[in-house]
Design a protein around this nucleic acid. Structure first.
Length: 558
RNA sequence: UGGGCGGUCGCCAAGUGGUAAGGCACCGGUCUUUGGAACCGGUAUCGAAGGUUCGAAUCCUUCCCGCCCAGCCA
């Protein structure tokens, strides 16, 4: 892992002997949604720091709010962390396992006169809190006696009061410039069934009270969290110091933001619930499961996280950075294969009708050990529609009337005719001739062609479905919404395009779900879970860099 | 507005008083049976202004800008 300010701090702690040289971190997700790429940054950081310093990293579910948390989410989170390549061993914990301990800590605070039961309503608490510029006022219940508080708190736990009737609050300072210190709520009454503790509790600890205790109980040394909790650190410090328990060092870093991507769990949930996407693992989602289904590898995600660094400045990483990481990984590892997404029929007029042959193709030019395969060639082929232009613009090197190009690993062919639909005028077929002397793709006379096209033999081709993805949002920052509009208004209407009549080279017949390929000249694709034998479905993970597209965009632009 | 935290190339990000790393993106070029990959080259004086110093992105002062906080969410 590259150096960062957190590692510097750990180094300093090692020098000064704080924590006795121990390093224990934790990844503490709330099981109220699926993990996304932003969580991956945190996972890589926490597990990475632990590994780099001979420490350990806990996986702890922060399940203090039973109204939003579910078992499905804990299962998905475990799967995603494991898939990313991290192992928590026996260190799997739940905040809910500490509820009794937390309750006892709260009693201890009451005994010290540092916490009290408050009868104010939620609304009243808000009013008493004051504002940035106006100090808060003490709750009328702030000076209840210790015994009364103890009894009331016990009765809260016993279920004697309805939801919202009372809270337990820390007695700190209603005039503090830090609003988190204005007698924050520690416990609320919630008669809700918890996915792990069932009906054992009807009071649940607030995050601010619970989180620091969880870290303390687990003897965590470095509690790494995001920037917005910086304001809360003085409160955690207060709780831990009043209790006199193990006191981890909290360190805040900037969460990951990605251009054209939403990272808010609430909004991702809404996309799922409204059916804007097909589920948490929709390949357009920035979730780990979505990226996995899209064809991303854990290696690429980890490399991405390593490269973006860790710092305290708010930032938005260009999504091109993520795409670069997966291209780089797949370029090295993915087998090359030929697939025609939008088929255009080609007849090689001088190639015998009854003949076909097999040509040798390299599986991966980046990896000689991947070997070679044979692809069938015959008189009728398919090429990509966009590889032919009747009236080619400047710098378009591909097929056009009269022009010669190379069919990859096969022959040079020249376009000698174009067949069109008499009504629509649409090109329906290309008539070509081939040069038998160029078998394999080299001309003995050293003549050159400016383009090499991918192709597939019509008679041997497999049919398949290919799903092309584009970004889910049209706006670089989907969190920013124009007045009177909704973030859903910025969903890209063309975020997915399904092509159902694609032709694939026959070697793809055996491809199993999850396997990844480079479709030559097009991009990286991954077999989707919807695939069935004889009816393969591919997701486009990412396109190849496309210089021609860039040139064309420039031409159209001016 | 009170408090907290930040501002180094278009986007990330090193740098911790000695004369601005790297990655992505972009622009050129080499090579090429993927207009892919690879390779070569190009692009900043550090939010601003003062000051300290032989020397400052790094120290001091003032100012400007951005983000976070007024849930019985996390």
């Amino acid at each position: 892992m590259p150096a960062n300010f957190i590692q510097d701090l750990i180094d300093e702690h090692a020098r000064t002997g704080r924590f006795g040289g121990r390093v224990v971190t934790r990844f503490p997700p709330e099981p109220n949604g699926y993990l996304h790429i932003g969580h991956a940054k945190s996972i890589c950081l926490n597990f990475g720091l632990a590994a780099a310093n001979g420490g350990a990293c806990n996986l702890r579910f922060d399940d203090t709010n039973p109204t939003t948390e579910e078992l499905e989410y804990v299962r998905a989170i475990e799967e995603d962390v494991r898939w990313l390549g991290f192992d928590w061993g026996e260190r799997l914990y739940y905040a809910s396992n500490y509820f009794e301990q937390m309750y006892q800590y709260a009693v201890a605070l009451i005994r010290k006169g540092k916490a009290y039961v408050c009868d104010l309503s939620a609304e009243e608490i808000g009013e008493y809190r004051g504002s940035f510029t106006v100090p808060g006022r003490d709750s009328p219940w702030r000076n209840r006696g210790v015994e009364e508080n103890l009894e009331l708190f016990a009765r809260m736990r016993a279920g004697e009061f309805p939801d919202g009737a009372k809270t337990l609050r820390a007695k700190i300072d209603m005039a503090s410039p830090n609003l988190n210190l204005r007698d924050p709520v520690m416990y609320r009454i919630l008669h809700a069934r918890h996915h792990r503790t069932a009906d054992a509790w009807c009071i649940y600890p607030m995050y601010d009270w619970a989180h620091g205790l969880e870290d303390s109980i687990e003897r965590v040394t470095h509690s790494i969290c995001t920037l917005e909790f910086e304001n809360h650190r003085p409160l955690y410090d207060w709780f831990l110091d009043e209790l006199g328990v193990h006191h981890p060092q909290q360190i805040e870093f900037a969460r990951l933001n990605l251009s054209y991507t939403l990272m808010s769990k609430r909004k991702l949930l809404e996309l799922v619930r409204r059916g804007v996407v097909a589920g948490w693992d929709d390949p357009r989602m920035p979730t780990i499961s979505g990226l996995r289904r899209r064809g991303y590898t854990p290696e690429a995600i980890r490399e991405f996280c390593a490269r973006i660094g860790v710092a305290k400045a708010d930032s938005v990483v260009d999504v091109a950075q993520l795409e670069h990481a997966i291209r780089e990984d797949l370029n090295r590892r993915a087998a090359r294969v030929m697939a025609v997404l939008r088929p255009l029929r080609v007849v090689i007029e001088n190639y015998p009708e009854d003949r076909s042959e097999e040509l040798e193709a390299i599986n991966n030019p980046e990896d000689p050990s991947a070997g070679v395969r044979r692809v069938p060639f015959s008189r009728v082929l398919y090429v990509e529609r966009e590889d032919f232009r009747e009236d080619p613009p400047k710098q378009f090197f591909r097929l056009a009337p009269g022009r010669e190009v190379r069919l990859r690993y096969a022959y040079f062919v020249r376009c000698v005719g174009v067949t069109k639909d008499p009504h629509s005028g649409e090109v329906t077929e290309l008539r070509c001739t081939y040069d038998p002397a160029t078998r394999g793709g080299d001309a003995p006379d050293q003549r050159r062609v400016k383009a090499t096209l991918h192709w597939v033999s019509a008679a041997h081709a497999l049919r398949g479905e290919v799903r092309l993805y584009d970004s889910l949002f049209t706006r670089a920052d989907p969190e920013e919404v124009d007045a009177g509009r909704d973030f859903l208004d910025d969903v890209n209407p063309r975020s997915v395009e399904v092509l159902r009549d694609c032709r694939l080279e026959p070697s793809l017949a055996a491809a199993s779900p999850g396997s990844r390929f480079q479709f030559e000249r097009l991009g990286y694709f991954c077999v989707d879970a919807d695939s069935r034998l004889g009816a393969p479905v591919f997701n486009r993970t990412v396109t190849l860099r496309d210089t021609w597209a860039k040139i064309e965009r420039r031409q159209v632009g001016r």
